[in-house]
């Protein structure tokens, strides 16, 4: 393969990863890492370095439109970021002292449960009245957004704020320890616990993952694991894909977003359980 061919193929794959990531609130690592390692034969260190760049690129590319269009709930994002960041710091602190085999199994089971819970919500209408949560009211988390597919404004209330903060802390610990799961746990926490509309959950997750990625990106860069020849086309492709995706989200049906997310949850859950099982 010539360097030009490599650049163009990587750019094309990243374009797709950016669209999918921005719609589902994920960083795109689920596409970028296997594509680089299995398809293009890149060393896993460089693939992970590029996927960290992909996370930030997804977030920055899509979030401008999500914030402007009020799809992402800024207050929810900032509150939960605090919990995830705290979790990530503690995760890094205990790394190496915990058996990762059991972590993979726990993570896999949590994802499987999330998939089931999110699937069961598929017939619920968005904007279903949730029991008012005094903490959410005090922090002014309730909000409104315009759903282009439904052609109406959706007023929504946020609930179980404390539970979500706890879940996000654990999500942060896990991602600090395993280097995965920045978006895949954020969306279920907002969807299942806080009762946010699915589009608001994925848009808010997209907005948040940039900070999660930036926290570790500096280190990867300094360690020389972000190769510009690989991460460059990834950044350009993902940014453009995510920008395109961010204009698409409003028009999609809630059910479709939910089903695709559940499939990816199940897939990742199986991967984690397999990793844990083979290490036992």
């Amino acid at each position: 393969m010539t360097p030009l061919e490599f650049t163009l193929i990587t750019f094309g794959i990243s374009l797709a990863a950016g669209v999918l990531g921005s719609l589902l609130g994920l960083g795109g690592g689920i596409i970028v890492v296997p594509a680089l390692t299995l398809l293009l034969g890149i060393d896993i260190r460089f693939a992970i370095g590029a996927s960290i760049i992909s996370i930030i690129a997804t977030s920055c590319g899509a979030a401008a439109a999500y914030v402007r269009g009020q799809m992402a709930n800024l207050r929810v994002a900032m509150l939960l970021e605090m919990a995830t960041a705290a979790g990530a710091v503690s995760g890094a602190y205990v790394a190496g002292r915990i058996n990762s085999v059991f972590l993979y199994i726990i993570f896999g089971l949590v994802l499987a449960y999330s998939a089931l819970a999110m699937f069961r919500k598929r017939h619920e209408h968005i904007g279903d009245p949730a029991p008012p949560d005094p903490l959410a009211t005090r922090l002014r988390l309730h909000s409104v957004f315009y759903d282009r597919a439904a052609r109406k404004e959706i007023v929504y209330q946020v609930t179980h704020t404390r539970l979500a903060l706890g879940v996000m802390y654990v999500a942060g610990v896990l991602s600090g320890l395993l280097g995965i799961g920045s978006g895949i746990l954020k969306v279920p926490a907002m969807d299942i616990a806080m009762h946010l509309p699915i589009k608001v959950s994925t848009a808010t997750s997209t907005f948040m993952i940039g900070v999660t990625g930036a926290a570790s990106a500096g280190v990867y860069f300094a360690r020389g694991e972000i190769d510009p020849f690989i991460a460059g086309p990834v950044a350009a492709g993902v940014v453009l894909g995510a920008t395109a995706g961010s204009h698409l989200l409003g028009r999609l049906q809630n059910r479709h977003i939910r089903i695709v997310f559940v499939v990816i949850l199940l897939w990742t859950s199986l991967q984690m359980l397999r990793k844990g099982w083979s290490g036992l």
Binding site: C60, M78, F221, G232
Partner: peptide, 22 residues
């Protein structure tokens, strides 16, 4: 490649700037 690396650093700095502005 140094310009590409600088572009990647600009991308990494963007979320930090976003938190500062908020």
């Amino acid at each position: 490649r140094a310009f590409v690396a600088a572009g990647l650093l600009a991308l990494i700095a963007t979320p930090v700037m976003r938190v500062l502005v908020s």
